[in-house]
């Protein structure tokens, strides 16, 4: 999922300054899981903005606002209401904000679209409802087959490919001692799997063309450009 955190209310109010009539779009996908932009958080934001003297024209929470397949059927019927707003506030990831903006343009509307959240990474829920971890940064050249299914590109603070730096102590990371050293985790698992020898292989510098932004995926062809 794309993890999100809430922006401070002051920052949101600053972005919404001068806009009286507001439309609210949440996301019942990742933002719901992060408790930042599901239907409940959208309702709470509506209350807060009303308290601040704003008028809420509509509230909507598509199942996946980043996906036009899910967002369009929910937002298209709200075209007239969108027309009636001064601005739209999206409680979703950066992708959700931009898909919402794209749809407003598609509907022939030129409304300010603002973000109420900060996107903080592609994360995996590892403790239900409590902890999400960043474990993959979509480098386009997955090496998990060679690293016991633990990603050093993401989980090593220095993205080292050929083993640990010298800063790790008692299995913890130099950059953040509350975190495990990814390479100690990889080594221990490779050892348990009887595959330590494989770690001796030189890993060449990554081809960062595969991670160069912005990437486009042509789904039917499975082609990345």
């Amino acid at each position: 999922m794309i993890a999100t955190t809430k922006k401070l209310l002051d920052e949101i109010l600053e972005a919404m300054a001068g806009f009286q009539k507001v439309g609210l779009v949440g996301c019942d996908g990742c933002a719901k899981v992060c408790m930042t932009g599901g239907a409940d958080e959208v309702a709470a934001m509506a209350q807060e903005l009303k308290k601040q003297g704003k008028d809420i024209v509509f509230e909507a929470t598509p199942e996946r606002t980043c996906n036009v397949v899910k967002a369009h059927p929910v937002l298209e019927p709200l075209k007239d209401k969108m027309q009636d707003t001064d601005a739209i506030l999206v409680l979703g990831c950066g992708g959700a904000v931009q898909v919402a903006r794209q749809l407003t343009e598609q509907y022939g509307l030129f409304k300010p679209v603002k973000s109420g959240l900060d996107s903080v990474g592609h994360m995996d829920m590892v403790v239900a409802g409590q902890v999400a971890l960043e474990q993959c940064q979509e480098c386009g050249e997955c090496i998990l087959n060679d690293t016991a299914a633990i990603c050093p590109v993401t989980k090593c603070a220095k993205s080292l490919l050929n083993g640990p730096c010298g800063g790790s102590e008692e299995g913890k990371c130099e950059a953040d001692p509350s975190r495990d050293c990814a390479w100690v985790l990889i080594y221990n698992r490779m050892k348990a799997l009887g595959e330590v020898e494989k770690l001796k292989k030189f890993v060449a510098p990554k081809d960062y063309r595969k991670a160069a932004k912005p990437r486009t995926l042509y789904i039917k062809e499975g082609r990345l450009a």
Binding site: A157, K158, L161, A175, V203, P205
Partner: peptide, 27 residues
């Protein structure tokens, strides 16, 4: 490789780490 930025006086900087020390030696 270099110490991590977090201990430094520009902790808000973006670390590069394009290459690791083994690769640097090879280069």
């Amino acid at each position: 490789t270099g110490d991590h930025l977090r201990q430094g006086d520009h902790p808000t900087a973006k670390g590069v780490f394009d290459i690791d020390s083994v690769q640097l030696l090879s280069i």
